[in-house]
Structures are given as structure tokens and as C-alpha cells.
Design a protein around this nucleic acid. Structure first.
Lengths: 208, 208
DNA sequence: CTATTTTTGTCGCCATCGCTCCAAAACCTC
DNA sequence: GAGGTTTTGGAGCGATGGCGACAAAAATAG
């Protein structure tokens, strides 16, 4: 995880902040989620966050820093949800089914922009954003590695064959969840996403 | 397909064009493929295409028109390759396996940028690019519909069960190929992509 | 109260972006 | 050649993008 973000209202000298930092961040998060980094302008941001440029700059540093913070906030909510589902006490195959179904629901939820904020972000960008691209690739790798770890746990617990190519299988489910994000973005309904998940689970290796 | 693009050198009055239009378009295509629409600036384009702004504007109209033309050129090569594989004379399951393996090879080829120019394009963009987004969504739908059509042909020919939910299965393989594009973009090797394809084919419905 | 610290509002800035204009150049037809 | 048509080179331009400067405002510390 990243550096600790200030959460409690600061006590001490200085003029107090006049806006809700979390709420402003959340609004920025939704804007980035919907439009991507390059598709979101500074003016869009401060208008949506209801901040002056100086408050923005003072509190969030820069557009890129804000984006990184928004991504961390996304990981702390949606990401945490997925991690929670994957680590529930159940057999490995059910854990993956639950994970993909949770993704299907989350990606098509009406509470926020459709799709995933991470899955497709920073894949095709200007050279000046190479750092951001690498960061997003890293987040995707982390998610895939979490899947691989769950599969290895399955091997230890005996409900996944020891012969399973864990990294390949994790890559498969990782790829599929990226595909779900594209489908959601293109307007697929929850039912359609769940159908895809159902089919995808048929690829699960035969029981040991 | 789009409107017919001029291919033969124009005969008639006027100063002749001093550059190879196809080659310039191809260079632009690769730049867009690598960096996306928003990540590619006008100056980048004319430098890579080796054109003056006036030649650019005179010959390609605008950045957005050029992008659309580049997408059409992409569809005429990579897209045609995929369509060709899918329409080869073989059983339906093999056709899909061949399609995905072709995608794996194409997405990881060293001859051009990794991944796919269509799969992830225009998913998170500024509102001003809503038209472009809709166009790209349309291209993705077309690809998925081509898969559905091949499945329906399989039902007619008897090697796909008539009970198969064709649209759902097409959506599954479509989603998977989008995921392959993300994986390729994030540096996955051809071997890894082929492993994913191999696993994905296990989801194929049991024979009729 | 004064001193200090932090946030805020306003104005403006400099680079980039995506063109656009115009005159000169290079071809064709007659 | 004259006239017409298209392309080219180069200069520049209006809008936007992402900040930054600065002084006033609002808090605490002593």
C-alpha cells in the first residue's frame, strides 16, 4: 500500500480546510474512472471537486498525484472487496467463481461508472506517462499474483491438482476479468457478464 | 467497411503529392496503436509521418479523421487476418482455437506495437470523444457478432449443440480476446498468451 | 494581543494542441 | 506559353491544459 493518507482532521495552527477532502477525492475518483487520466482535465477536476486551483494544488499536489491517490482509494474499496471475496473460507473453485461474480456485479453497478478503474488504464498512453503506465501494469500484476497465491493455497489444501500451472491459470482468470471490464464499459448487462463468468468457470481444471 | 480510400496515384491537374500516403498512414497507425488517440499529439504525428501541417491537413483532414482511417487500415489487415482464420473450413471449435491462437500471435508480434488497436481503445475518454468511443464500441460489437455468426453456422452444420447460448459464448470469447490484449500490453509473452488460450478452450461446451 | 501557520480566492502564465492561412511550387490542359 | 488545379512550406493563432504567485483569511500558540 501507499503512504498513509491523513484521515483525522488536523489539529494545530493554520486555517482549517473548508471542504471534505474524502468527498472531493471520491468525486475525482469517479471522474477518472469514467474518463481516464488523459480524458480528465484540470478544470473538470476542480469544478467537480468544487475547489479553487490553489486549494486543489495545496491539498492534492498535482493531477498525477491526485490520480495515484484516487487509484489507491479505488484499491481500498473495490480492490479490498475482491480480495475479501477471494480469501473467504471456501474451496478454491468457488472462491474464483465468487470473485468473478463479484467483479461482474461491481463492473455493472449503477453506483459508479461501469467497468474497472484499473483493468484498462494506462495501456496506450503518451511516452510522458510511462511512469503511470508502469504503475497500472504493476497493479494488474498484483491482482493476478493474488489469484496465483489463492491457487497455490488450493494446492496446499488439496482441492487443486499439484500439476496445475498456477501462473497460467491465474493469467487466464486475470485476462477474463479484464475482458469483463471491457464488456461492461461497452454496455453489457449484469446478466450477460454472469453468463460469461459461468462459461469461464467451465475451463476450471478437472478435479484432482 | 468505410468509404473507398483513394489508392491509385491521382491522374490529373495539380501538383503531385511528394510523399507515400500509405506509408505515412502506416506510421500514424503504429503511433496510434502504441499511444492511443489522446496520447498521440498532432506534432508527434506530423513528425513521424514526415509531413508539414498543411500536407497533413490537406491529405488527412484532421487528427480524428486520420485516426478513423488508421482504424480502418488496421481492420483491413489484422482484422481481415482474424476474419480469415475464423472462416476457414474446419470444425467450429478448431476455428475458435485457431482464432484465439492467431490473436495471441498477432498481439505479441514484434512487427508492431503489442496488443490490439481496437480492444481497449476509447473505453475511458473525455465527453468530447463520445463519438469515437461509440465507434470503437461498434467495432468490438462487430467482432463479437462475427464470432456469434460462426457459432450459428456451427449449429447449422451440427458440430455445435442447438441448445448453446450463442451470444453468451461469443461474448465469452470476445471478452477473453480483450483480456489477451491487456496481457500482451503488460508484457506477456506469446507462450503465456497461448497457455491462456489453451485454458480458455476448455470452456468449450461439451460436444452435442 | 502578536506571531505563526495553514488554507483560500483570484489572477495570470507559459507551454502545448490542433489546426489555419497564404503564397509559392509543381503539375495538367489547352 | 496561359490558365487552372492541387500540394507544399512556413508562419502563426485561438483555445485549453496544468499549474503558480500572492496576499488575504482563519485558525492556534504563547
Amino acid at each position: 500500500m501507499a503512504t498513509k493518507i491523513e484521515e483525522e482532521p488536523r489539529r494545530g495552527p493554520g486555517r482549517p480546510r473548508s471542504f471534505d477532502r474524502k468527498a472531493a477525492l471520491q468525486r475525482a475518483l469517479h471522474l477518472f474512472w469514467e474518463r481516464g487520466y488523459e480524458g480528465t482535465s484540470f478544470d473538470d477536476l476542480i469544478a467537480t471537486m468544487r475547489l479553487s486551483p490553489s486549494s486543489f494544488y495545496n491539498s492534492f499536489g498535482s493531477k498525477e498525484q491526485l490520480y495515484r491517490e484516487a487509484v489507491e482509494a479505488y484499491l481500498a474499496t473495490s480492490g479490498e472487496l475482491f480480495r475479501g471475496v477471494l480469501s473467504e473460507e471456501t474451496d478454491t473453485k468457488s472462491a474464483f467463481r465468487n470473485l468473478l461474480e463479484a467483479a461482474a456485479r461491481e463492473f455493472s453497478s449503477a453506483d459508479h461508472p461501469s467497468g474497472c478503474m484499473i483493468s484498462l488504464a494506462g495501456t496506450h498512453v503518451a511516452p510522458s506517462l510511462a511512469g503511470l503506465r508502469a504503475t497500472m501494469t504493476g497493479h494488474r500484476r498484483n491482482a493476478q499474483e493474488a489469484m496465483a497465491a489463492r491457487l497455490r493455497k488450493g494446492i496446499e489444501e488439496g482441492d487443486v491438482s499439484a500439476a496445475t500451472d498456477v501462473d497460467a491459470l491465474a493469467a487466464y482468470y486475470s485476462a477474463l476479468s479484464r475482458g469483463l471490464a471491457v464488456q461492461a464499459r461497452d454496455g453489457a448487462t449484469l446478466d450477460r457478464l454472469l453468463q460469461i463468468v459461468s462459461i469461464a468457470m467451465n475451463a476450471w481444471p478437472v478435479s484432482p
